[in-house]
Design a protein around this nucleic acid. Sequence first.
RNA 1: GGAGAGGUGGCUGAGUGGUCUAAAGCGCGGGUUUGCUAAACCCGUGACCUCGCAAGGGGUCCGCAGGUUCGAAUCCUGUCCUCUCCGCCA
Length: 436
Amino acid sequence: MLDRKFILENAPLVKENCLRRKSPADVDRFVALETQRRALQARLDDLNRQANELSRSIGKADAAQREALKAKGRELRAEAQAAEHELAGLAAELDAIHRAIPNLSHPDAPVGENANRELRRGKTPLPTFNFPPRDHVQLGEQLDLIDLEGGARVAGHGFYFLKNEAVLLELALQRYALDVLLREVFTPAITPDLARNEILSGIGYIPRGPETQIYSIADSDLSLVATAEITLGGLLADHILEREELPIKLCGISHCYRTEAGAHGRATRGLYRVHQFTKVEMFAFTTPEQSEEMLEHFCELECRLFDGLGIPYRVIDTCTAELGGPAYRKFDLEAWMPGRGEQGEFGEVTSTSNCTDYQARRLGIRFRNKHEKGTHFVHTLNGTAIAISRALIAILENYQQADGSVRMPPVLQPLLGFDAITPKTQAKRDAAPHSS
RNA sequence: GGAGAGGUGGCUGAGUGGUCUAAAGCGCGGGUUUGCUAAACCCGUGACCUCGCAAGGGGUCCGCAGGUUCGAAUCCUGUCCUCUCCGCCA
């Protein structure tokens, strides 16, 4: 959320920003309602003051006067309660608009729709194949790594089984990412896969409703998390930190669950858009002065991770129309996926955002300066270290060989214990244990 | 899942209807004293909203939401969380 006072004092700027970000939030209505709310609050404060004064006087009054004073007190309290109800009604609508107003945008973020800007390329050149490259679905099937049909049978379209070497690959990718991040003094965490709806909406997700990306748990106020950003950010909800404690860098492993409502027909093949995957996520709480640098740091780490894996990618500065509500600026890494489209295409594999104080304001995460009264909101940032499903796509498709095998990125080989995934022979398949 | 206890400021913790306008300690800040450091002593120290140029004033907040009352940290109901014990369980 933006600061209410800020919106009031900078309505034209906030409106302009909503336009750039394709947000339908009604800023004018917000300003009108907020102005009303303030007046009403002032009246309520005054009624409360009178009632408080009166109550104090009753304690000291003699018995003869008490009944009359009590009656007056009842009157005042009734009036105050009416004002309070009116206020609650106003506040509900106000809050709904308030939450819909997106964060401000970084002045350097490209403005408009389809205006994403490529900032740079990774170290690894695009691969060339002297054979028609397969996509990860074919590779996954031929090498018995990904069972989409099995996933569909058990849980429906969008679910899958990882099998055989793909299981080790998932674990190796987690460990690889973690090793890199531990050297950068992130505190590692394995987070809950469920979170309270209050936390979800603090981070900026809408737990329920027709467009929601979130699976909710029936008869509870819990939802499956769409990313560990939710749990890591929620970790310090309602905390006041000392400036010296910042920045705090965390990385969390969690499963991510997404309904992908409204995403049908959009690059749905294989592992690209699935309802569940595992992700190693980076998260930081910083002071306002630290957040821009931290965004660069996160982006650099994402680049380091994919350079290390030997996967070609480009870095994108996301345009304003495509920024999510909380993001002030967002960089995406798009990895080269040779099996995508006709000739191969770039596909998003990671993303890092500076959310400035937008999430912190909702979650109540503040810090304090020594020698200073009051508090300030921290800045929060998140970034993908590795989203396993999409990293798998990139590895399988970029490292495939003419004979149908897939070499393993050298950095993963010590973690995996093998250097390539080769087609199983019939004998090996027969020897593999079958579940009944 | 059952029984019990409890959630109070940055932390510990007192407070069972009206000077609670929340004690005290710790921590933190300032000062005095002081070869240095430490100790001791003194003073000051919650958040949020709002009015005011300021000094300062008002309101809200004792897990959360309701209720009783002129008045609630305190009484009642619901709810969430924590702890102890029992049961179940990887």
